[in-house]
Amino acid sequence: MKAFERFVGRVAPLNRANVDTDQIIPKQFLKSIRRTGFGDNLFDGWRYLDEGDPSKTPNERRINPDFVLNSPRYQGASILLAQDNFGCGSSREHAVWALEEYGFRVVLAPSFADIFFSNCFKNGVLPIVLDKDIVEEMFRFAESEKGLELTVDLAAQRLTLPSGEQVAFEVDGFRKHCLLEGLDDIGVTLKDAGAISDFEIHHRARSPWLFDTMR
């Protein structure tokens, strides 16, 4: 995973609550056995007018001019501004892969669905929970003629608006550390291999029927 550095990014507003992972990346694109190739189909059902399938390239598709991400002013956006319960529905990590590949590195929303939220951190995407009022205000800016650019500083846990106004945000210490350092969770956990083995010995003694079954 790449280390997460301070950056300045444009905000794209997606003003819908309860955006589910089926919307973020529809199931017909889940058949790939790879981790890449999902960006072109992010929000497929909204982004294009025709039904997508994995064999079509974006050039062969009919673009939906009314969908916000297709508007010229949000091209190159790296921050997605969303509403409540973003990422609900299935556990598919493909949703985060699609967002990441499209170019989003941060998602801002008043609330997120649990599994999506933790999937983000595993892929170098930072989900930030903000107060509803702040989100509403950001929507107003982002949807205005001028648009909105933010400086994202994870180390300082701070967003900076062009006006210089700053918004602090919360992030779990462990996840922050992993993002900043670009650490892989598995490597971190395996440092505790001894504790896992010790637990396992105790667990097996207590509940032997849990072991050596699926063979």
């Binding site: 556990s91 985060v96 969770d185 598995i186 956990t189 896992i196």
Partner: peptide, 20 residues
């Protein structure tokens, strides 16, 4: 409970999950 693909890999490799 359900997990994402990175967690699938994590469970395969460590038999554990990082949870809150």
């Amino acid at each position: 409970h359900g997990i994402g693909t990175s967690e699938v890999e994590h469970v395969l490799a460590t038999q554990c999950l990082i949870q809150r």
